[in-house]
């Protein structure tokens, strides 16, 4: 099954870069193998006919009024690093 949808480790690495997830080399190889099987099963979607979709969706609106939200202190409480009431990101070299 994995033969016709072989996934190259480089492809896994590329997607991992897009998704901003580092992978160890052993993970890349293992994922390449597993993705081949999983993507091969997704191939069955080719048999699905094009379907007319009737979306019954309606926009939900509300007045744009000021409401209580989190205080600055509450919003920062879970941040690994903060400075002067701001989130602190990595220093850009």
């Amino acid at each position: 099954m994995s033969d016709d949808t072989a996934v190259d480790p480089e492809e896994v690495q590329h997607v991992a870069d897009l998704a901003r997830v580092d992978l160890a080399e052993t993970e890349v190889d293992r994922f390449a193998e597993q993705f081949a099987d999983i993507l091969a099963s997704f191939e069955a979607l080719d048999e699905v006919p094009e379907v007319e979709r009737e979306e019954e969706l309606a926009n939900v609106m509300r007045p744009d009024e000021v409401r209580d939200g989190l205080s600055q202190e509450e919003a920062l409480r879970n941040a690994p690093e903060t400075e002067d009431g701001y989130f602190k990101g990595p220093r850009v070299s």
């Binding site: 997830v21 580092d22 690994p80 989130f87 990101g89 990595p90």
Partner: peptide, 25 residues
Amino acid sequence: FDGVRYGVSGGYDGNWNETFARARE
């Protein structure tokens, strides 16, 4: 989940994308 507002921080400096990728790893 980039480890800045909440979650595990990579705790590294340098390229933002690489730092986030390490936090997520």
